[in-house]
Each structure stands twice: as C-alpha cells, then as structure tokens.
Design a protein around this nucleic acid. Sequence first.
DNA 1: GTGTGTGAACTTGTTCACAGCG
DNA 2: CGCTGTGAACAAGTTCACACAC
Lengths: 233, 233
Amino acid sequence: MTGAPRRRIPEATVARLPVYQRILEELLRSGTTTVSSEVLATLARVSAAKVRKDLSLLGSFGTRGAGYDAAYLIDQIGRQLGLDRIWPVAIAGVGNLGRALARSEGFAARNFCVAALFDNDPRIVGEIVHGVVVRPTSELPAVATATPLAMGVITTPAPVAQRVADAMVEAGIRSILNFAPRVIEVPADVLLRYVDLSIELQVMSFYQARSSESTAMEGMPVIRSIGLSPPAS
Amino acid sequence: MTGAPRRRIPEATVARLPVYQRILEELLRSGTTTVSSEVLATLARVSAAKVRKDLSLLGSFGTRGAGYDAAYLIDQIGRQLGLDRIWPVAIAGVGNLGRALARSEGFAARNFCVAALFDNDPRIVGEIVHGVVVRPTSELPAVATATPLAMGVITTPAPVAQRVADAMVEAGIRSILNFAPRVIEVPADVLLRYVDLSIELQVMSFYQARSSESTAMEGMPVIRSIGLSPPAS
DNA sequence: GTGTGTGAACTTGTTCACAGCG
DNA sequence: CGCTGTGAACAAGTTCACACAC
C-alpha cells in the first residue's frame, strides 16, 4: 500500500523510535501538528542531526522549511516497528508486578493485548484481573494452541522463572521478557530480554552521574561495604 | 586501599557490568568460584572477547589459564559501579507499581535503600509499605533536607508526573527514574531516565525478531490498523 | 529564510588473533 | 597447554556542514 522503503534500520535508531513516537503523541495531544527536528531532539534529549538521520531512514517524511507532520510520523514509526497489528501477550506470575503490568494502559496503547494470565497459587487462579481470568500455568500449552502468543512476560518469583521460561518455549513462544531477578537459559533462536526494575537502569544512571564530575552526592553519608581481598595467587 | 586503575570506562561496558555481576552472583550461589570469559559470555549472551576486554578495563583480575575469581570480580564490579555504599531512594506514587518496587528485594540487594514513600491519596498516606510510612508529597522538601536522597523514582499517574519531578528537582534530587508514561522536562544537569514497562523493550524485541527473518509470527492473525494518508503537500 | 536530507569526517565500540603468563 | 590481556583491523554509530526543497 504505502510504498515503504524497506532499508535496513540500524539498531541504535530502532531503540530511539519508540521515544520519538511517545513524544510525538504527547505533542499531538497538546495541539501541535507539526514539529521540527530541533524540538523533537530537545524533548528526546538527543541531537537534531540524529533525529533527522533517524527519520530519513524511514523515508522522506519531512517538509523542508517546515518540519514533520506529527500524526503521519507516528503512523510511519508504528509501521516500521510492527505496531500496526495486534500482538497477544501472556503474563506468568500474577503478583504485585504482574498485576501492575496487566492493568497498565501502556499495552493496549501500543497494540499489545494481554491475552492470558498464569499463576500457580490456588488463591490467585480463577481471579479476574483487568478482564482476564488467571489460569494455572499447566494450561499454558492449551492456551497457546488456541491463541498463538507473540510474547511471554515472566513476573514470577526467581525460583520458578526457569521452569516458566521452559514452558513458554515449549508452547512456541519466541520472545520472552524476563522481570524475574534470575538468569534464565533459552534456545539461541528465542529472543530473551531482561528487565531489572531495581538495578541495571539505576546503576547506569549513577555511574554516569558520578563520572561526569557531578558534585550532587558530595554531602551524602558514605557507607562503604567491606571489600574482599584479591584471590590468593 | 585497593589500587584501582581509574581509567575511563566506556559507556557500553558500563551497561554490561551489572549483567555480569548478576550472573556471577548466581554462579557463586550455585557453588562455582572460578569462571572463564567463555562461560560468562555464554550466560550473558555476548562474545568472550567482549567479556575479556570489558573486565580488563577494570584491572587485571583474571588468572591466565584458570579464569576469574567470581567473588572478587563481583566486588570489583560493584566498586566500579559505586555500589559499595548505600544509596537512599524515594518513590513517589504508591500504586500497584510503586508498591511492587518498594517491596522488591532487588533494591536492598544492590545497596539501594527505599528511604521514603510519597503519595497524595489520603487513603494511602499513613500506610506502611515494606516498613516505610507513606507521606504526602508536600513533605518531600522536609524529608530531603533530613535525609539526602540520591534518586527519585516516579511511579505516579501520568498527569502528575511533571509536578512530582519538579518537586524532586527542587528538593535537590539529581537522578530521576521515570516510570510514568509521560515525557517530563528537567534541567540539563539532572539525570533523567525513562522506564517504559510496556513498550520500549518489547518494541525493540519485536523489531529484532522480525528483522532477523523469524518465521515465528507466520501463523498469527494479522490485524492492521488503518493508516493515515501522507500530509498534504 | 528555514529546516530537511545526506555524503564525508570522525568517534566509539567490536572482533580478531596472538603474545605471554600461570 | 588453557585462558587472559591487548594492540591492530574492522564495523557501527554520531557529528558536521552544506546543498537543496519549500
């Protein structure tokens, strides 16, 4: 239909596209219909040149002298990212985090649909969260057969994360998002991503803050842990 | 004390260090004390050369012919990342997600300490979550004065996210982690990081899955949204 | 004039391959 | 002999600067 340029988009660009998209959506909501690379760059905290290069890879959607049409750009980015169709996801582990994810608006806003919830706690099985009934994990294969699942989200306690991952792989799920604080192993052809809510992101932030000579932490109580000795040689 | 080589560590390496660290901790728990770059690389899903180069930047901690001492390496990585001291964090917004974060083990495991919780809902204020009392957001300045806060975590609904961010900046917080699905603006010297639970990560995963010629989604019901027309020229 | 689109220069990050230490 | 540590070759990503379309 729309003559899309099927070039290969660099990974670094792909990682920024959702950021642009969300900013564009907000601008649109606040009444802005046209946006320049300069403005988009400021809001996304990147350089204007980067924005222009990124967007030019999807095609020439901008208007010289004016900027980009926000609505059209949102649509083009969405198409590029595969968000122009609905992706059914399953969430395993209906605790605090699983519940928060299932109820969050974000999924639906990006055409992800929470199609199934799994948990092994008999007090939770049968409960209806955000319109979806919680089933025992043993029913995963049956559900996956009836409704092909595009992605599995693991929000279980760490000890059962690997078992759940195995079940998901067995059921044909090829993309897994792991929120459990546990390293899991899956076949090489399965896409596995970790989200560590408490650690990785913060750690990076802190390191960057400290390495850019920030003096913000100057007045803080420094409590050092006891270091280990180097291994005996 | 430990003669640390204070070289500049590349950002890409810093991003991988927490991954190595967690894997090392798990290996240690399962009884492994020494690990080769090969093994660590496989578990972290990167190349062995990368692991060696990354670790060599922190100093020469490995033993040729044998590998690395897991416990010692964990400690060295922790020191490099600034995790050898305790960082107090404040969480604003004690809903599903805020609660899940406050209760999660991960913070304490990495020397982050949930020092304060804020919410404006009178039904939530006063509640004690994971041993910390929930205060009204108006008390943020007072709390920040008494206990310097290293990081602010925003888990509020989108509409109040900007207001909370402003209050945090005002209170002297220089690192903010935003879980609210809303673009917020802070001064350039404040470190701002977005975590979009439902979107960015999944989107990337999907794009990568599709672009590597995966046939996994072949049998899925494709439901395309209605595309927009190009902007009138 | 204004702001996009893009080759060319540059910087950062990754892989290779192997010397050398334990 | 195995595995680290590292310079040197290569690839990816970013910035620059400017031609050109509106």
